[in-house]
Write a protein that binds this DNA or RNA. Structure first.
Lengths: 348, 348
DNA sequence: TTGAAAGCGCTAACAA
DNA sequence: TTGTTAGCGCTTTCAA
């Protein structure tokens, strides 16, 4: 691989001149420029960004650390982040932590050794060490999809999202409303649940404790919806799942059992990932603006890197979610009980 | 950020000694080592891999270029690649080409400027320039999920996959078999189709031209399955879609129209991505071993990087696909026509 | 066992 | 407008 020295030799000039030509840092005579360009073309020269960065004190590289690139929600955010960043001349180092805190730490120290200009972090577990991470490493870090008090972050307003879901169900006249809380201990879920509760109470329909289930963030947890459905108890007319995967799991079980969505039970999910369009009918869900999250996170990080610090009001960016109504929710039906029995009979 | 010089000063030794201590390139007295380590700890020193790479002639960084990280198939492969590579001390630069050839080229030259040690490429469009890419850039490149004649590559045996699908349907007694070919011009799809055709012919049930539809690789194309279903013509008893998304699209439309899967029509997809488990019943599909693909691709690239060239028999790695039988296929039913009418009546 | 010094590819200050 | 040179952080001879 030819170096700047090779080019200089071939063009019969000094490396300084080539450097100036390359960076426009000084005027270069037209004639000289031509010779240099010719040498570059002939040799197939490409700058070595390492050498440049060594002097220039930056690498134009950032680390993107996330729990699982296979999760469509993270993948979408990652895509928008990478896109914004690459337009601005940054490249991103992908680090999949497999949801492991220790891999996360390893990655961070590796990224530091590579002298990345900053880090975008979707951490897997909340922990104290996160708080001081940025200060200790003296590296700009922005937390994505999770707020960290006092730290730069970009995330969605989960409490509002929960309220949106509740309001929608309330407006449709539902009174018996169930909640499927996946990973109830993680902050984002906690907030969705809190918002959901709040709004329900404000609407005069407090959440019935016997109608909430807690579990993991997985299809299989959704399947457990049948626990809400025993013959002996009055079934809910609407269900809110704290994410789309769980909602889809619930939908499958519901259909298998002969319930109709939304006629017998309305269903709302959270996230608005691709699969919410796959069910029949497609899922009503609280949409997170993945585009905005990714784009703002990238912008915030670049601001931190380039100007040293962000305007205070930009330190904690929160993106509002929005309800997207698709087919899985409907006005509560007065005859839903009867309908349901009919379906059951048909089935057997 | 402290440098090796700072450490050397703090420990009262020369930088050479610190370097030796760090890399074990020479014996360092125990006492000296202790002092160095102490300095490192106090200063919070971390090697600068850029400086090291400048001398050492490598960066332990590779580029991963793919059309869309949001596509679950690519995301899974990406994950396994990143995992294998990171275990071996490499980091990966994520480049999402948004399916654009020109962005692809830009990325490649950028990666070269960063002096990556190699590139993993899932290209978006087949084109001649691909062939000479590796030779011209003198950079190890392995093509992933797409074979390129004469170049290092790791991909699945798509022809075999097509045959597997056909054989399965044949064994279940199907005679009227339809094909949904998404993006029929791309090599992988072409091969799946070819294999499918071959096996069908070998089984004495050649593909009926009126039963093949061509379109994009999207849910919406699957919806077009109804074109195969008009009242006036004899509907197929089985459908093969060249990927899972299309299969899911077909499934949705089928269900909406009152057909039962698999009683009225069997359905087989391709890829075995997550969503194939979401339908009701879950999709029978030809599984590609994303783990093997990612892992072998990473291994091949590292071999190319570290030993300079791969054993010839490893240059074109092909991974066998496998049929995974789930609920969407069944033995052809003699009464499927009647059943179907019943369902229709019930529906209206 | 340690140190001195050259050099990796580049930029930038200074001089010419 | 161009050239010379120091130096970015590191490794690696070669000597001591």
């Amino acid at each position: 691989m030819p170096t700047i020295t090779d080019v200089a030799k071939a063009a019969g000039v000094s490396v300084g001149t080539v450097s100036h030509y390359l960076n426009g840092s000084a005027r270069v005579a037209e004639e000289t420029g031509k010779r240099i360009q010719q040498a570059i073309d002939e040799l197939g020269y490409q700058v070595d960004l390492r050498g440049r960065g060594l002097r220039a004190k930056h690498t134009r590289t950032v680390g993107l650390l996330l729990p699982n690139i296979t999760n469509p929600f993270y993948a979408e955010i990652a895509r928008h982040i990478e896109h914004s960043l690459s337009l601005a001349g940054y490249q991103v180092l992908l680090c999949d932590s497999f949801d492991s805190t220790s891999r996360e730490d390893d990655y961070i120290s590796n990224l530091m050794s590579r002298r990345v200009d900053g880090i975008l972090l979707i951490y897997s577990q909340e922990r104290d060490s996160l708080q001081e991470l940025s200060r200790r490493s003296k590296l700009p870090i922005v937390f994505v999809d999770r707020g960290v008090p006092g730290e730069a972050s970009v995330h969605s307003d989960n409490r509002l999202g929960g309220r949106l879901a509740a309001r929608h169900l309330l407006e449709l006249g539902h009174q018996r409303i169930a909640l499927l809380a996946g990973e109830p201990h993680v902050r984002n879920v906690r907030e969705r649940v809190a918002g959901f509760r709040e709004e329900l109470e404000a609407g005069g329909v407090p959440l019935d404790a016997s109608l909430v289930l807690e579990g993991e963030q997985a299809l299989s947890f959704g399947h457990r919806v049948d626990e809400l459905l025993g013959e002996e108890r009055q079934a809910p007319t609407a269900i809110f799942a704290t994410n789309d995967i769980v909602a889809v799991g619930a939908w499958r079980r519901l259909i298998e059992l002969g319930y109709r969505v939304p006629e017998d039970v309305s269903l709302v999910g959270y996230d608005d990932i691709e699969i919410s369009r796959l069910t029949l009918p497609p899922l009503t869900t609280v949409a997170q603006d993945k585009h905005a999250i990714g784009q703002r996170a990238a912008a915030l990080l670049m601001e931190l890197i380039e100007v040293g610090q962000a305007a205070p009001h930009d330190k904690g960016v929160v993106i509002p979610p929005g309800l997207v109504e698709r087919g899985s929710t409907a006005r509560v039906s007065k005859v839903s009980g009867r309908n349901r029995d009919e379906v059951r009979t048909m089935k057997s």
